[in-house]
Amino acid sequence: MNKDIDIIKFQNLNKWYGDFHVLKDINLNVKEGERVVICGPSGSGKSTTIRCVNHLEPFQEGQLFVNGLELTEDIKRIKEIRSYTGMVFQHFNLFPHLSILENLTLAPIWVSGTPKNQAIETAMHYLERVKIADQADKYPNQLSGGQQQRVAIARCLCNSPKIMLFDEPTSALDPEMIGEVLDVMVELVEDGITMICVTHEMGFAKQVADRVIFMDAGQIVEENEPKAFFENPESERLKLFLNQICHH
């Protein structure tokens, strides 16, 4: 791992939905192994920003480099970049017709061509890590939200990603389950995987983030290391935002 390499580089990235200018001149560099938290009001473009990284959303202007490769419309390029990235969604998006184990082994077997028994071994290893190995043969709908999200994280890890993108991984969960998911994420940090995490869990941000980014109305308004970010916010918009979420 090289802490000096920018594994993700946004350069003047702009995106529109029709007439709606959703991302405005996004410039953001993330170093290898860095943990970045993005927060901001709803609708400010946080999801859209991280979904550009694995091309779930195309953009119209600017450049985006992932692991040294420019993200273009070329299918091969997109596939290569997706092979470095894993994404965890707000609503888990597990495949409901497949067992937990099948959810985890699907991509390793059919995308990377891993032999089945080896894929199962890897899957069980990651299920152990997210403390859910005993549920391997169940189906997603039999698990609690927190368990499903841990499965979703393990599903990404099975493809050994260099970058993990989290889109509000705990906001669809009942409060008592948020902790178990955050714990798993904190442990991931030790693996040195690059993480971009959209979340409003400020405790998590303070504990693990190298940098916190505040977005509003499609722009990056402020970024700083966590201590300064929370203690000395500069812009009025961030002050207002921090006030709002702290009073919750």
Partner: peptide, 16 residues
């Protein structure tokens, strides 16, 4: 839509 997105982000090719 999330099912398509999950399949895409896992890099599953179209037919798979």
């Amino acid at each position: 839509k999330g099912q398509y997105e999950a399949a895409d982000s896992l890099n599953l090719p179209y037919w798979k």
